[in-house]
Simulated assay, not measured.
Amino acid sequence: MSIEKYVIVTIILLCVAQGAYALTFYGSESHIEDEKLFDSVRITLNENNSQQLKILYMNKIINFSFSANFPTNCELSPSERGTFVICDVSKATPKNRSIAFNLTLQSVQKVGDKYNFKKEFVVYESVNSFFMSVYLPKLSQLNSDSIIPTYGAITSDGRSIIVYWQKNSIPLGELLSFQMSYEVIGGQQDYTVSMISVVLLIIVVFVAALAVKYKKLPEIRTIFPVLKSDEKMIMELILKHGDGVNQKVIVRESGLSKAKVSKVLKSLSERDIVRLERVGRSNRIYLVKYLKGK
């Protein structure tokens, strides 16, 4: 092989090696209250993470706080396009590589009787698995045709309408833009109509749950919007590795502590979402049959 060809092949291999996702998971659970967005973000870094995590939020940041299971510091840096959240992640380890943000964002604008929601941000790292959910205010009526991107899905927890988006393989620097519009129902008559709608929705959800349980339809993704961020991340890993994944694998890839993973799995087991089977000094994790559609 000539030197020129060797150099080209080496460059290609280096590019492929560096193409691994810097973030294994980016999860966001948001609640709209008083025309503000209260956003809880959970991020899991790759084992071979970079020295710095940088995210640009186009929406105005009103409040910000952070936490991590490794020593770090995060700061806000205003720019012409928005505000950067910049975190030092150089001290993250293979076992401790999770970081969380709590943000209050100005992302809702009222136009007449309608409320327009828009959230835009850029993650300056590649992301393997992305999930974002937005809980609308109680007694809201969603304009389903306004959801952007259109792959967004709609569900409910019986109290609020939830819109969520899920995507894999997000490249570094891609603009993530999410939009929708809704109305808040007011007045006693509208309130009564809304409550009837909520009751009917609960009945529909209950009937659907029975259908899933007894007809054993595969509805695993429908439970994601009502799971906590840690639960979503662990469920993603279970789906990734398939039935019978060892609990040690979940601990290693989630970046959570053994105690935290055990606590989350116990909660999922008690809610009949997963089944734990003791093997030696660890557990193997299985989805319950009705969620597998078998």
Rank of each mutant, 00 (worst) to 15 (best):
Y124I: 13
K118S: 11
C74F: 15
I161K: 03
N128E: 13
S98Q: 13
N128C: 11
D157C: 04
L136K: 11
G173Y: 07
K60A: 10
D157A: 03
L172S: 01
Y115K: 13
M132T: 05
E75K: 15
D113F: 12
I148Y: 02
P78Q: 14
D88V: 05
V108Y: 08
S169N: 10
N143W: 08
F64T: 04
R81D: 08
L136Q: 01
F66K: 09
S129F: 04
F84Q: 04
G82L: 12
Q106P: 05
S133Q: 11
A153H: 00
S169C: 12
S90R: 10
P94M: 06
M58F: 03
L142Y: 04
K167M: 02
M58A: 13
Q109V: 14
F66L: 11
D157W: 09
N116V: 15
S107M: 03
V127R: 03
I162G: 03
F64G: 09
S98W: 05
Q141G: 09
P137H: 04
P171K: 13
A153G: 02
T83E: 01
W165P: 03
S129L: 09
Y151V: 07
R159N: 14
L105V: 01
V85P: 07
I61C: 01
Y57G: 04
C74Q: 11
I161Q: 03
V134Q: 02
T150N: 10
L136R: 05
S67R: 14
V85I: 09
F121D: 02
V134E: 00
S144R: 11
L105Y: 00
D113T: 08
L76C: 13
E80K: 15
Y115P: 03
N69R: 06
V123F: 12
V134S: 02
A68Y: 01
S160W: 01
Y151W: 13
G112C: 13
D145A: 14
T93W: 10
R97Q: 11
T72R: 04
Y164W: 07
K60D: 02
M132H: 03
V123S: 04
D145Q: 08
K119W: 05
L105K: 05
I99Q: 00
S126Q: 14
N69I: 07
S77C: 09
K60W: 00
F121T: 04
S67K: 13
K91L: 08
T83P: 09
C74G: 12
Y57H: 08
G173H: 10
N143M: 15
D145S: 13
A68M: 06
M58D: 02
S133N: 09
D157H: 01
C87Y: 05
K110V: 14
R81T: 07
R159M: 05
I161E: 03
T155W: 08
I170F: 11
E80H: 08
S133M: 15
S160A: 07
S133K: 06
Y135Q: 02
L76V: 10
I147V: 15
F131K: 00
D88L: 12
L76W: 13
F64D: 08
F70Y: 10
D157K: 11
T104K: 04
I61P: 00
N128A: 13
S67L: 12
K91R: 15
K110F: 06
E120S: 12
R159K: 09
Y115S: 08
Y57Q: 03
S98K: 04
I154C: 07
R97A: 08
